[in-house]
Amino acid sequence: MRNLFLLIFLTLFLSCKEDVLPKPKAYLSLEYPKKIYKNLEIYRPYSFNILNNTSVIDEKNNWITIKYPALKASIDITYRPVENNLKELLTEAEKLVYKHAVKAEQIIPKDFVNPKKRVFGSLYEITGNAASNLQFHVTDSTNNFIKGSLYFYTKPNYDSILPAVDYIKTDILELIETLEWQN
């Protein structure tokens, strides 16, 4: 019995040479291509700059989809003419934003006003595991209204897609800042 106790004691004493530490968390090392913008090549009642390495899908009713194949994402842009219904269009756009409040941690609005180009709108950054993390609407308040939403073709995991959201947010800001109405 004494030998057994001595054997167990020596085994435990000699086997514990180093503390076991958990592995540190790994961080993604994502590298995105340098941004080069070009003007939207299809005719619409609006024009703006888009990222060179995106593809544009021509939809009916002056709608378009800007695809980011490498990121498995798209910006869906809908166009509606303003026909004495600006209040309804703005209400509908905000309802679509706040529909994500269930999954959102926070909704951060940013307003845009450019009276010289008649561009007025808002960008909403939706943090958390919402289906769309960036949404915006822009209008000239008399004739044109655009609504855009960013979607990823994957289950929402905000921590994982945050670098891609930040990358595309710059493109949406470029879109809004270079927007010009054609009519």
Score class of each variant (00 low, 15 high):
6 L>H: 10
12 L>T: 08
18 E>Q: 09
113 V>L: 13
51 L>F: 13
10 L>M: 10
125 E>Y: 05
86 L>P: 06
27 Y>N: 06
123 L>A: 02
35 K>E: 05
14 L>C: 04
9 F>S: 11
149 S>N: 12
16 C>W: 08
179 L>T: 15
166 D>M: 15
69 P>H: 09
55 S>C: 02
165 V>M: 07
95 K>I: 02
125 E>D: 11
79 Y>K: 02
22 P>N: 03
54 T>P: 11
132 S>H: 02
62 N>A: 03
99 K>H: 05
90 L>V: 09
9 F>C: 09
154 T>A: 06
13 F>D: 01
138 V>E: 07
63 W>Q: 14
20 V>T: 11
137 H>P: 09
91 T>S: 05
7 L>W: 08
13 F>W: 08
138 V>N: 01
80 R>S: 09
74 S>Y: 11
46 Y>T: 01
92 E>L: 08
83 E>H: 08
23 K>W: 07
108 I>E: 06
102 V>I: 12
170 T>M: 14
60 K>V: 07
21 L>M: 08
31 E>W: 02
61 N>H: 06
7 L>D: 00
121 G>H: 13
10 L>W: 09
34 K>G: 03
153 Y>T: 06
95 K>D: 00
3 N>Q: 15
83 E>Y: 04
181 W>P: 06
5 F>E: 05
50 I>W: 01
104 A>N: 01
112 F>Y: 14
123 L>Q: 00
136 F>P: 07
71 L>K: 05
81 P>E: 08
57 I>L: 13
107 I>Y: 01
81 P>M: 12
147 K>W: 02
171 D>F: 04
80 R>F: 07
2 R>D: 11
66 I>G: 07
136 F>I: 00
114 N>R: 12
38 K>T: 03
145 F>D: 00
60 K>M: 04
30 L>A: 14
112 F>T: 02
108 I>F: 05
36 I>G: 10
89 L>G: 02
182 Q>G: 09
34 K>H: 02
36 I>Q: 03
146 I>K: 00
182 Q>E: 13
127 T>F: 08
175 L>H: 03
100 H>N: 13
66 I>V: 15
15 S>P: 07
104 A>T: 01
82 V>E: 00
6 L>R: 14
131 A>T: 11
164 A>G: 13
176 I>M: 14
37 Y>W: 10
72 K>R: 14
84 N>A: 10
92 E>K: 07
123 L>I: 15
172 I>V: 15
105 E>R: 14
111 D>C: 10
10 L>G: 06
68 Y>P: 00
44 R>Q: 15
6 L>V: 13
